[in-house]
Design a protein around this nucleic acid. Sequence first.
DNA 1: AAGAGTTTGTGAACGGGAGAACAAAATCGC
DNA 2: GCGATTTTGTTCTCCCGTTCACAAACTCTT
Lengths: 235, 235
Amino acid sequence: MTSAASRKGGRARDERLERDIPEATIARLPVYLRALTALSERDVVTASSEELATAAGVNSAKLRKDLSYLGTYGTRGVGYDVNYLRYQIAREIGLTQDWSVVIVGIGNLGHALANYAGFASRGFQVAGLVDNDPARVGEKVGDLTISSFDDIDAIVSNAAVSIGVIATPASAAQDVCDRLVAAGVSSVLNFAPAVLTVPDYVDVRKVDLSIELQILAYHEQRKANGAAELRASLA
Amino acid sequence: MTSAASRKGGRARDERLERDIPEATIARLPVYLRALTALSERDVVTASSEELATAAGVNSAKLRKDLSYLGTYGTRGVGYDVNYLRYQIAREIGLTQDWSVVIVGIGNLGHALANYAGFASRGFQVAGLVDNDPARVGEKVGDLTISSFDDIDAIVSNAAVSIGVIATPASAAQDVCDRLVAAGVSSVLNFAPAVLTVPDYVDVRKVDLSIELQILAYHEQRKANGAAELRASLA
DNA sequence: AAGAGTTTGTGAACGGGAGAACAAAATCGC
DNA sequence: GCGATTTTGTTCTCCCGTTCACAAACTCTT
């Protein structure tokens, strides 16, 4: 879903082989990272692709191929050094640096996101909270104070924010997105159930809670139908 | 990601052609549904695949192919009847019936989910809220009262719950999942950053907020590197 | 030091989904 | 009624991702 257009230029890299890591692999790297962190906390020094794959819930061949895109960090006959691989993946994703994010729309979900511990622990700093409701502006959430829409520009430039999180109602999402982009944000995580239009250079990822439930409902219905047909065929 | 194993049986259906709708299509149907609902609210009667595709943010050829898996609901030269198509998609996904869900883990995120309007409006009824913390049991959230872990069985059987939502910390997720499955839940929406192990017949979908941010961070880093290299090559 | 046992990295086969392109079917104008 | 126009449904091709399978590379035992 991320715009491939921004990468299509493809100037030949002479110095080092330019890794073109598949999108599907990128999406799994954070999972591997989490598995490695868990192993590291249990003081495990080395892990085989099989062990790692089980911990990450994937096929071991897939895991090996994924890792091979990053480089040759394993040792045949031995496995992978947990901490070394962990660092390499973190570096590849870009977690060796800190990232500032701004959250727009501080309703129930925005609150939850603002307090989510999983962000800070992975190097994502919430640099600002923004809401349109004048009654909410000034309210404190954790360490932060809610700002108004008009402060978006200041927040983004002061804290070098590159990632914006939209947790507003669908009706406001496009407007908020436009303002974020105008302020300099080039990646957007959208929780609003709306299709966003952005310039090519901006990446958008969408998380839609009700869509996930609907997908489950579809399979649930199929299971129920299958069971009913089975009963009928046995009768 | 949903287990395809439960469908591999594939007994030949003689009576009616058994639609085997691709997973990728299923995931887009809710988006089309939303676009159709929006059009319907603006009293639009008919829409072409091009219009629908734009509203849903996809390619029109893809949209037509997706819809063709459901049946032939369009009219050549005309387009699709908005309300008719809306009903057909809703029926296909299983939204013409109500679904009961139980939410486990009523922290910040659980609260947000419990209050999320997008669930109820699509036929998903929250039948119960469950938390492990004795201090929280009895607390009211909206119309509902938080129950304890031990009430999971009763809630699931009383309300015919088939979908469980896990919003606990990662450490509790597998235990909660096991209890839900034991109680009769056969679909799980997991917000905890953990890999869940379930029987074949259970579908699991995962939503991980920090993974989405990490994916954005990766692309952000690439953009920054590209820009730096560009500057270097110009210097 | 050499053979047996492990485990990685990758080439090759396979399957599913995306998009282009076009024939079939409907409406509209005359 | 008939040709022009519109728009769907579908075929075909291409690409990406998954999985298998195996050679290469390392360790361990004797």
